[in-house]
Nucleic acid binder design. Structure first.
Lengths: 286, 286
DNA sequence: AATGAAATTTCAAGAAAGTTGAAACTGTGG
DNA sequence: CCACAGTTTCAACTTTCTTGAAATTTCATT
């Protein structure tokens, strides 16, 4: 019922929704009618299902969230079943995912051949979301967080610096680049620098108009040599070698990277082992 | 299917589960068989459904969480439907719930007669949980939190002090009670004082063996006059007047109380209004 | 190891729910 | 005001779920 309703609301008409759901318009119409009867009030303004009532909007919001969660759980259960040795679900920020998980996951799976691993890389917020919703067992995030039901430990600290092409002026100049030089050299903002608290830095880059949220395209821009950006060091180490990282004079602040472990996971043994592997990793040496 | 499986796993046998589900054992048996066939592997160790396989345990964990969430969403949808004017769901720590929500909710419902309000009071962790899961629109918590998709603003700060019966020695003595006097007077620990960072304080109370997590029973103990505890001031103001609050010498730290608003709520208008009412409240004057 | 009570599974029949195509209806745009 | 695309209704059909009885399995007891 909820799925039918959400599909119709998304499609804006009944016949298209019916096609998407793989049944006839009349079946969809009847299901919808049952739902409206159950809830006593109408969910759509008109018979042409293109505008929701206020109740419809509220139910839509709730139902859509629920369906996403439900589909995720089903997928997780099925992944479990296809993983006779067990399953561990990791969520991480991309830089760390690319840098240590190839090693860490290799280590874990060599100890437990047949163990399934699900690795997802997104931003810190999504990682926390996945952990809180029970959609991941272990996670790596920027910053330090105190969260309900989640164990936290710091992994390493990361210097911020300017990233530029090897032949860029800032890559060669001898005294460390200053904040103003960086800001004046075609600076591209990105979402990782928002956590730099330094007022002088934020003020200097306030004028730059270009913002990119995706690291890959951000670095592609920088590789052209016409742009520069500021990122934590480990983000570039994870990328190809054709970029230069240079500390910026006056920017002392570091990015903290933390490991999070959800308590009450369905797979405590492997999560604990991965936790230990990650803590044992030589973070400083990179 | 999932509900059937979870019920059987909880019951430990099939017939009892069948009774709870309101169907015959054979129906339950068949449903379970379908689920196991779908997942290819068995979920129970034996035919007497009293021990789960490893897969069974993992699926149980996932399914149980899902079912709770699902039932909650259904209830929320039905509450919506029974609330033609709209619905707002509030989660708050008890002290604030008792202190301002009678006023705030009165204000909101007088502006919108017919608006439904759902108020739940629990601890900070559960409040955050409810917000993150989309089970509450607005929340009040201890401490300051940066959370994905949630707007946060500080409401007020709260002094910690010793709570005792009016005729208790610590209630009358003239110089402010010291940490050691408090610790030596039948001190009861509670979960709100864990956020006091002060090392000297934590060390002084480390010896006390009694811990209570429920504020009501905690204060009942204190009313006997044989025990004392330390709490933020507003926690006691919300209670009856037969208790005395006294600052403790050397304890400067304050509890921060914050207001949280989930973005993307199904009921943005009323949540925003309640947000404004709460921010407009004279927090200092209490 | 054999027995028996209790629980579970199987089976085929029956009930309930969901689905369909055709026909009737509705309200929107020309 | 009409035409028409989209929606609802209806009765028949299909699928799925449920049941009670019988067969089987399990576990505790001897």
């Amino acid at each position: 019922m909820l799925r039918t309703f959400v599909t119709v609301a998304q499609s804006g008409n009944l016949s298209e929704a019916a096609a998407r759901l793989g049944r006839t318009p009349s079946a969809v119409s009847m299901t919808l009618k049952q739902l409206e009867e159950h809830l006593v009030w109408r969910l759509f303004e008109s018979d042409r299902k293109n505008r929701l009532t206020r109740l419809g909007e509220q139910v839509f919001e709730l139902a859509q969230t629920e369906l996403r969660q439900f589909d995720y759980t089903l997928a997780a259960i099925e992944t479990c079943a296809r993983s006779p040795e067990g399953l561990i679900r990791v969520a991480s920020i991309p830089s760390v995912a690319a840098r240590v998980f190839p090693f860490a996951i290799g280590e874990l799976t060599s100890r437990h051949p047949g163990l399934s691993v699900e690795l997802r890389d997104t931003d810190t917020e999504q990682v926390i979301d996945a952990l809180m919703r029970g959609q991941a067992d272990i996670g790596v995030v920027s910053g330090q967080h105190t969260l309900n039901g989640i164990r936290q430990v710091g992994l390493f600290r990361d210097r911020y610096g300017v990233i530029c092409a090897p032949d860029h002026r800032l890559a060669r100049q001898e005294p460390e680049p200053t904040i103003d030089q960086v800001a004046g050299a075609g600076f591209i903002r990105n979402n990782l620098i928002n956590s730099i608290g330094d007022g002088a830095f934020q003020q200097a880059i306030a004028g730059s108009k270009v913002v990119l949220h995706n690291t890959t395209s951000l670095l592609a821009m920088v590789r052209t040599g016409k742009w520069v950006t500021v990122l934590p060091q480990s983000v570039v180490q994870a990328e190809r070698e054709d970029l230069v990282f240079r500390p910026v004079a006056g920017v002392q602040e570091r990015r903290h990277v933390s490991l999070l472990l959800r308590e009450g996971t369905a797979f405590p043994k492997f999560a604990g082992e991965l936790w230990d592997i990650l803590l044992g990793f030589d973070w400083a040496g990179t």
